[in-house]
Nucleic acid binder design. Structure first.
Lengths: 358, 358
DNA sequence: GGTAAAAATGTAAACGTTTACATTTTTGCC
DNA sequence: GGCAAAAATGTAAACGTTTACATTTTTACC
């Protein structure tokens, strides 16, 4: 870590002429300005059909003149559920470019539909996730998009039970019926391992995230299925699971590279793990793909600029976010319809980090 | 773009036993439960000293029993300014890992102080920025952290004029006095160019972001100063500015590489531009650093895993975010104190993407 | 035990909306 | 022009808090 230096200086040319507090205009002000009741103004704002064209125009003029913007807090307080236009989004790790894509997808939809988004990033910390869930509830959100910390996430379960619209992304909930948008993890992992096997690899290490997260269980299943298809016995000593971050990737890969019988390929379970593993491999001066092949789950925009260009299982993060937002909107409008599971396909992006052996 | 397939199926084992609508408890419920007035309950919640120990305990028991959580929306509506615990954060591009770090820094502070954060990502789209500023205002935020779209950002100026606490990050505002946390861009760029010059480069192309953004003007100044120190004339034909994204980086770099008299080094103005430029260079099969050197502004956690490990000017994004949040908190508590500018240092991270020539 | 001051509690009015209901105005028709 | 129905508008009560002020209870002291 670099030393950081805070240079402070104060702007001296300060002409602090008591800022005359500009009061935000409210319904009442508009009502007075256009000489109608606040109810009528409210109706104009909400496009209520039963207001005459004349008054509508008049009120709209006043709104423009006073630069009136409805107070969303009051709106939200008043109208319990519906049309308060606030979404919650709770994700495990905003450093993971995959979730950044998800955020962008959600935000894209939200922006188009005039929703605001309140984001909580819990960094796989269950207490933090709980806090964010509580806060979002107290903020009267219309609905929530969340990647539950694990399959039995009580916090998320509770929201669903309270009938708050919830859409899960990336991972579902095991004990409760809920809308989900996820990826076909099993098939995605299968494709990656299948490819490695097809080019001669037999000892393939798997750097996984924590197996409490359903995603990683599914990916392991794909790994096993591919092995099974090739008649290769499953060797548990090649499976490594810890946290889902850069550091773990680095440390696990370092350990793998020290193994007496070193695997010829690594499959790494997410973005950050892959990047950590790459650093470990480079640090030891081991050549990719000549000495070891690697495929990562999660593609990144700059995968092609890595050393070497990385082969990866691409997940459509943006689409996942956007679809989740769409589904949430549906759910808000229609709280009692049947819950839906949407499974998106992955795509194996073959680049230069894998090679045929033997 | 891969084709995306939506497999839909409905969960059939749906046991939709009319969820008995769990009503969230409110002050009134707690008051009744503990047989005091709502005012007293409110006092307990806000740690008002003038409530007797006995009642406090009694009320706290009721709060626990009913799982009461204060409604933040009502709190925010009622108490104009202060203690509503909501921050706005408006950033230009969440795909840029630098801003992700900033977000993390802000969120880190917010979490510790029980603030919620409402994020808007405007993608250098002025209309979108405007919308987010409006929304956040209507949400009665306590204060705003924002990277203004340019130095004369009217939207942000207006908020400041309305006396809403604002801290600018990454870039300031030219016409108005406001709190700012930024980086010494001029020196950062100077260091990079100085290093390139010191190892013999003379033709150094600069891929910049849009010069309406103050950051890029400052970086250009550093570029010029370094050139000047070495007595090398400034050649405007080596300066390229467009949008601040991956695509621009790719396209500009492609153009640079076609130049009859090709520069021996590239200095690229941000993260995404660098990544785009790298792809362009790799696409043409040009070797870094043998055939061309490159230094980027903005370091990334995985810079070391790029091909080759990238030399870069490191900005402390996390610290910037955290410091901004701290300053905003100060500003909220103390709206009329003197505005502050905090300038953080950059650090030149030398890796393998530059080499001595001649 | 009576008093005044201090401490604890309660009452009710805000905050800026939405909306059921009541009231007024307009319309169409004879 | 008178009438009923339809359309437009207004009134006032909510939503869940905070807080100034009023009231009650406790404390301390003689």
């Amino acid at each position: 870590m670099p030393k950081i230096c805070f240079l402070k200086f104060n702007s001296s040319h300060l002409s602090c002429k008591r800022l005359h507090f500009i009061k935000l205009s409210n319904l009442k002000a508009v009502a007075e300005h256009s000489k109608v009741s606040i109810a009528t103004v409210s109706r104009v704002i909400n496009n209520d059909p039963k207001v005459s064209k004349d008054t509508m125009l008049k009120v709209q003029a006043s709104i423009a003149a006073l630069e009136y913007k409805p107070n969303r807090v009051a709106q939200r307080l008043r109208s319990t559920s519906k049309k308060t236009k606030l979404l919650g989004l709770v994700i495990p790790d905003i450093q993971n470019p995959f979730f950044v894509d998800v955020v962008r997808g959600v935000e894209d939809y939200a922006y188009q539909n005039n929703f605001a988004v309140m984001i909580g990033n819990f960094g796989q910390d269950e207490k933090k996730e709980k806090l964010y869930l509580d806060i979002l509830q107290s903020e009267n959100i219309d609905g929530l998009i969340v990647a539950p910390i694990h399959g039995k996430d009580k916090g998320v379960e509770n929201l669903v039970k309270k009938n708050i619209p919830v859409v899960c992304i990336d991972r579902g909930l095991t004990d409760i019926d809920v809308d989900v948008v996820k990826v076909d993890n099993e098939q995605g992992a299968f494709n990656a391992i299948d490819h490695l096997l097809s080019i001669g690899h037999k000892r393939i290490a798997y750097i996984s995230g924590n197996f409490k997260i359903p995603t990683y269980i599914e990916r392991l299943a794909g790994y096993k299925r591919a092995l099974n298809d090739y008649g290769i016995p499953y060797d548990e000593s090649l499976i490594f699971a810890r946290d889902t971050d850069y550091k773990s990737g680095f440390e696990i890969a370092s350990k793998i590279l020290e193994l007496k019988e070193r695997p010829t390929a690594i499959f790494s379970g997410n973005n950050l793990l892959t990047l950590g593993a790459l650093e470990a491999i480079h640090a030891k001066g081991i050549k990719i793909p000549e000495e070891i092949s690697i495929i990562g789950f999660d593609d990144m925009p700059w995968s092609i600029s890595l050393n070497p260009p990385l082969s990866a299982v691409r997940q459509p993060g943006f689409d996942m976010g956007r679809k989740a937002a769409e589904m949430l909107y549906e759910r808000i409008l229609n709280p009692n319809s049947i819950k839906e599971k949407v499974i998106l396909k992955t795509e194996l992006m073959l680049r230069k980090s894998t090679t045929r052996i033997e």
